[in-house]
């Protein structure tokens, strides 16, 4: 029980830390400094001591702002879908094992539960903006939905090929099973899907600010926007924890080893994501879909071959 309460804070702060790291790494790779870890001494009295929790400040600030609800929106859907999305993303943290701690991931069918929760969260991130009635949001959502479909394909196949090869639908059992070739191929497949799901460039076309203003979130402001940002923080944690627990066999290790390993590996993943983010301009949605279909079908094929072997 105590783990379940602890994981709420851990996941929240890890999510914050990851999104800070993405910002920091990209800034460093762009010849900039990015949010400061140690504020300059003479500015500390006004500007605070550290900015490691910069994303948290953003969210708190958004909560303190007035929320504008546009006339043209469908109010109920517009207001509630961010919350539902957040709830889905939040609940899924309990079903994903965290470095050797099983949490709720040993309930039957936990793999199915997690995949449904994640899909649900992303779906409500799409549905809310549709209700806002802004043309920009609509175009953004359309792109997001297309991207969602192709990435989901790879995501599900990778999850279930693991399930088949480990012969279990329980996440915890999969995560403590033996490492084999499918881990690598399915892991690659999952990684490419995560790129699209977390809107890492070149796949951030749904938020392409030069083309469609702020995309799906154009009409959101204040608290509701803050909720979406919060959801994103949990989602980052979800995907990274899921990736590590399924594909990298650290869960069998004792806790004092697995937690540092988890941290190191997750930071490494974030670093790779930031490099990809920095090096690429964004694709057109058409190119992105073609790229995905190509890559995913190749990876799927390899995946299936390794599975059969």
């Amino acid at each position: 029980m105590i783990e379940l309460i602890l994981i709420i804070f851990t996941s929240f702060f890890l999510g914050l830390f990851y999104s800070f790291l993405i910002r920091k790494f990209s800034a460093r790779l762009q010849w900039r400094i990015g949010p400061l870890v140690f504020m300059y001494k003479d500015l500390r009295s006004i500007m605070g001591i550290t900015r490691i929790i910069q994303p948290l400040y953003d969210i708190i600030k958004l909560f303190g702002k007035k929320t504008i609800i546009p006339e043209s929106s469908r109010k109920r859907l517009f207001i509630y879908s961010p919350y539902i999305s957040l709830i889905f993303a939040f609940i899924s943290i309990f079903f994903i094992p965290f470095s050797g701690i099983s949490l709720l991931s040993n309930v039957p069918y936990s793999l199915v539960i997690v995949s449904y929760l994640l899909i649900g969260s992303l779906l409500f991130m799409i549905i809310g903006p549709i209700a806002s009635g802004s043309p920009w949001a609509f175009i953004g959502v359309r792109r997001e939905a297309e991207l969602f479909l192709v990435t989901e394909f790879g995501f599900i196949i990778s999850l279930f090929s693991m399930a088949i090869s480990k012969n279990s639908l329980i996440l915890w059992e999969i995560s403590i099973s033996e490492f084999n070739l499918v881990n690598i191929t399915a892991g690659l497949l999952m990684f490419t899907s995560i790129l699209g799901k977390l809107h890492i460039k070149p796949f951030d076309m749904s938020e392409a600010e030069a083309e469609i203003v702020a995309g799906p979130y154009t009409e959101y402001s204040g608290k509701l926007l803050g909720i979406y940002y919060l959801t994103k923080i949990f989602l980052i944690y979800d995907f990274i924890a899921l990736f590590i627990s399924i594909f990298i066999p650290i869960n069998t290790l004792p806790i004092y080893l697995s937690i540092p390993l988890f941290l190191i590996i997750s930071i490494l993943i974030i670093f790779i994501l930031s490099i990809i983010h920095v090096l690429n301009p964004r694709y057109r949605i058409k190119n992105a879909l073609i790229w995905y279909i190509k890559i995913i079908s190749i990876l799927c094929l390899i995946n299936i071959i390794t599975m059969v072997m």
Binding site: S26, Q30, D204, A210, V278, L279, N280, R282
Partner: peptide, 16 residues
């Protein structure tokens, strides 16, 4: 243009 096609790095580089 780099910014418009979503390449923040290019923007930062040339503006630097």
């Amino acid at each position: 243009v780099a910014d418009v096609i979503g390449w923040k790095t290019g923007f930062m580089y040339t503006w630097g």
